[in-house]
Write a protein that binds this DNA or RNA. Structure first.
Lengths: 215, 215
DNA sequence: TAGATTGTTAATCGATTAACAATC
DNA sequence: TAGATTGTTAATCGATTAACAATC
């Protein structure tokens, strides 16, 4: 059976992290209930969309009051599998790798970056944000020893495919790909590509459209 | 009139950069025509989807042969407004700001980062990837002098809104927001948020789903 | 109680996919 | 010519939005 079945509710899943962020901030007010309407206002969304999105987590709200804050946070975290610690490694200890390693928000998502790898021997032994850098030669050994299942790929694009091959050979099953390369992987390996250019494409067309409207 | 009209074809626009990337690589083969079928195979998409996407740029192909490579590149670049130079500044000269400043691919998109800003005085005068760092105090002055219309926001989230306010006060009309903060801006200012957590949410749910299927 | 908010069911909208004639 | 590929028109699919009864 192919593992490449399509994921349902992807637009909703993409919005859940912003809900979680907002709800955690709201939690500090000690109000035990939060309404979908309030979340929607905060994020410029429609209340019905928020309710539909939250429904996929299985949360049940109370008419008139809203959703119980603690339970709602748990439900979102559980749905996203953010309630269990997920260990990950950084492959490519450059600026982007370093930025992601230092990104505190990931800790709130259960994501722990436990090691970094680089093919530049002069980086070996150094640390980025208290995470040790190893040489790529030791990838398989350390991945096996630490039982790692996720790699974050932040190498320059010419090295993307070869690094990916090393990651797969090390037994890793999921890759978060920050390069602009479409990676070739065995069917059972999951790849999530973070394409910076696509966001800029949207912004660029918006700017052109706005400029045209003004004239 | 509100400028917040919804952008059409956003899924297609998001895919155009990967098409462009593939087509530019193909260009080196000197073959004057490229088929939608070939692009689709390369990116694991359906040929019909590629044809529909390319159609929004106005390109016209030749049955049996495909699309003329040079014209296709021009059509995509023109549609994305990537055929004109777009100057931008980095606000927040940390690791992420530095990574984006050094990201060579942006040059292929007409995006030129011409200055960086940071509130840390010890960074003032230094450079990241040959781009000079200025103090935030000089933001408005330099933005006006250099006629900047786009800011890339890469500050830590606690500083996101105040930095955004400074950007707007400097007269900038478009912000590419890499923080996890929902920015409050006047209606006429465009914001494109790049939300790293949403990509991780997708990956995390895929991993959970796959793990469940295997058991 | 009155009214705000939920959850469900239905309607709409837009994106993807299918079918196929046209054609180089 | 035969066949691969385009572009158009229609069908399907899934996401968003609307309507509204239930209810705390």
């Amino acid at each position: 059976m192919s593992t490449k079945t399509k994921l349902s509710y992807t637009p909703s899943i993409r919005r859940l992290p912003s809900y979680l962020h907002i709800i955690r901030a709201f939690q500090r007010t000690s109000d035990p209930y939060i309404s979908g309407t309030w979340i929607a206002n905060e994020l410029n969304l429609e209340p019905i969309q928020v309710r539909k999105d939250l429904a996929i987590t299985g949360i049940v709200g109370k008419p008139k009051k809203g959703y119980p804050v603690e339970q709602l946070i748990s439900a979102i975290e559980h749905y996203l599998a953010w309630d269990v610690e997920q260990k990950a490694i950084i492959v490519g200890a450059g600026n982007l790798g370093s930025a992601l390693t230092g990104y505190q928000e990931f800790r709130n998502h259960g994501l722990h970056i436990v090691a970094a790898f680089d093919s530049d021997p002069s980086k070996t032994g150094k640390t980025i944000h208290q995470v040790q850098i190893f040489h790529m030669e030791n990838l398989k050994e350390i991945v096996e020893k630490m039982n790692i299942t996720l790699a974050i790929l932040t190498v320059p694009s010419p090295y993307a495919q070869s690094s990916c091959d090393a990651i797969v050979a090390a037994g890793i099953r999921a890759i978060w790909n920050f390069t602009n390369v479409k990676l070739k992987v065995p069917e059972e390996v999951l790849v999530q590509r973070e394409d910076l250019s696509s966001g800029y494409a949207i912004l660029s067309v918006m700017m052109r459209t706005q400029a045209n409207n003004l004239s």
